[in-house]
């Protein structure tokens, strides 16, 4: 049997929410002396287990604050889990927040190279993708404009175009399809679907159950950091809908 592409083993993530944020030394020592430092421990993820096979498209569903984004970020390597282990075999394209690392003072062209480098592409590689990015984002006339002058839709288009270059083994999407106008959303969906037809696996977070059913074949329902149910979208999604159906 082939090795799973993502393995999440008993992952728990604890955040120490200090009652007040202490970020100066003076405060720290004064409070320390008075013994006033208190932490509220908060487990955002609690013993999460799942594996993902190559080519699978998994959706993470759940209400706001249930830990979906924390889980994605743990898989992407942004957070290090407090307990447990995440193993990822393959390259990742994280679309967790579009345009992370855009520098507003630089032009669109310069940002393409900067953002590419953040994703781990060299300049030479980016040059090959450059035309494709310009083409997809439909920003031909604006490549030499500092992006602080861009509208949010333009930024989103550029960011999505950069994030989806190449052939990543795993695509991680967090709510990114909710950007841009209707036409561009469709274009993004098509692009993701085309990548799925290839060898790419997908981890997808969305509040739109319709979108989930359209794109993914397996869903994991998370509530308060626990996995409630894990199964085919056709089974999990109706249950999820029912659970949160307004009376």
């Amino acid at each position: 049997m082939e090795e799973p592409i993502i393995e999440v083993n008993h992952v728990s993530m604890e955040f120490n929410l200090s009652a007040e944020k202490i970020d100066s030394m003076k405060e720290y020592f004064v409070k320390r002396l008075k013994n006033q430092i208190s932490y509220n421990s908060f487990w955002a993820l609690n013993d999460i287990n799942f594996t993902m096979k190559k080519g699978e498209a998994i959706a993470l569903i759940g209400l706001n604050g249930c830990g979906k984004s924390t889980l994605l970020k743990t898989i992407a390597g942004v957070y290090k889990p407090t307990k447990g282990q995440v193993t990822v075999r393959g390259s990742m394209a994280p679309l967790i927040e579009l345009g992370a690392g855009f520098d507003m003072d630089l032009t669109a062209e310069e940002n393409i190279y900067l953002n590419g480098a953040i994703l781990g592409y060299s300049r030479a590689e980016m040059e090959r993708y450059y035309d494709d990015i310009v083409e997809f984002s439909e920003l031909h006339d604006f490549m030499n404009v500092p992006i602080k002058n861009f509208s949010s839709g333009m930024l989103a288009r550029l960011a999505f175009a950069i994030a989806t270059i190449g052939k990543p083994d795993i695509l991680i999407c967090d709510e990114v399809l909710s950007v841009g106008d209707f036409r561009f959303q469709e274009k993004c969906e098509k692009r993701i679907q085309k990548m799925l037809e290839g060898d790419t696996s997908l981890l997808f977070v969305s509040h739109s159950i319709q979108q989930v059913q359209k794109i993914c074949d397996r869903a994991i329902w998370i509530e308060k950091g626990h996995v409630v149910e894990d199964g085919p979208t056709s089974v999990v999604c109706p249950k999820y809908n029912q659970a949160y159906q307004p009376e």
Binding site: L114, G116, I118, G120, R123
Partner: peptide, 20 residues
């Protein structure tokens, strides 16, 4: 090695922005 291009980009960004 993977992130070396980023180092170069970050430095060139610093220099570019400083003197733009």
């Amino acid at each position: 090695q993977k992130f070396r291009p980023l180092l170069a980009e970050l430095v060139s960004r610093d220099v570019k922005i400083k003197y733009r």
